[in-house]
Design a protein around this nucleic acid. Sequence first.
RNA 1: GCAUUAGCCCUGUU
Length: 405
Amino acid sequence: SPLLGSVIMALGKVNMIAEAGELFGFMGIAGCKSNTYVYNCFITVLSEAGFLDDAHVIYMQMCDTKNCQPDLVTFNILIDKFGKAGRFAEAFYYLEALKHKGIEPDVKTYTSLIGSLSMAGKVDQAYEMFHSIREKRHLVNLVTHTELIKGLGRAGKIDSAMALFREMKVLSFDPDVATYNVLIDSLVKRGGFEDGHKLLEEMERNGLTPNHRTFNSLISGLAKVNKLDAADGLYKLMLQKGVVPNFYTYANLIGSFCRGGQVARACELFKEMEAYYDVKSSENGCSHVEESGLLGSEGIAVVHNVFLKGLVEASMIKEAYAHFKQMHERGCPPDLISFTTIFGALGKAGELKRASFLFQMMKDADIKPDLVAYNALLANLGKIRKLKEVRDLVNEMVSAGLNPD
RNA sequence: GCAUUAGCCCUGUU
């Protein structure tokens, strides 16, 4: 069973959900005793892939068993995933069910809920929950505080975020790099670069080493107020300090330079990234490790897409299209977002035939259009009254199981 | 005993 569980998890990580389900089916037979651990692994896989209702079905199956009743881990997974999806009725139902079974929620249960609530724009409710448990020291920790500081900061309640930041220090929950990062991010996203920078100095005084995320936030803050040279300077500084940039770094910089009309510098950075990426991958074969600052091919795809969008916004559709066509040979085949960016731009520019052609090409490449992709095409078809095409497309999306909005 | 659950940075339509 320990093996079964970890294989199920591994399959989930590479999105082989059907296969994970097949293996899960072996539990209880073939000499494999059912246990809660394997159930929990499968519930994790399903819910991380977005199959929340299926995860719930498995939970119900557990409830019907004799030896595999849902435990705290089961509930924590479900509460976290339903909460992050904004399905609070269910999340709170699980919280009640858990208490009803006589299980005590733990710090992860509450931290998840506080995080989900604040990301859904319900910071007040998150704060209320925090308030109701903060006296019980075992129910809150560093992560709980960081989560709430993030929520308050994102909601623009910087003063409350700073207040909580001071309070946690008094309570000896020592802020770590992530805590500083969420605060710095909130500050600079609202134009408070100077305050963010002060926090950077403070964290260094406290013996904490800023990481690539710290720099990414600071860079995006500078870019937001169009201080591109300063952003570039910070990028160089992070390299100097030996902090490894990741694809977020490049996405930030490249997008900003395009928007600021400095497409040449954006191209330069793009090449720099590709060179950097090549070197790093050959240095240690499998270096797509998030902690080192590198990301896998999904990360590269994001940078390509940001670049495409940047070129489009700089009215360089020809160049965007040229780059789009190069993506394949650059080892990064265009994905749904690349296609949508390009045919959206072509459509907007009145090139509807080419837009429709690309839309078809995308489907031929077995990439399923989603709601956004249909909308991007429909908006432009609608503008020039191609009502028959509009009707056909709407029918198509409905039969694909999408709900037109 | 071991394994499964919480926090920080990026992209497409309106």
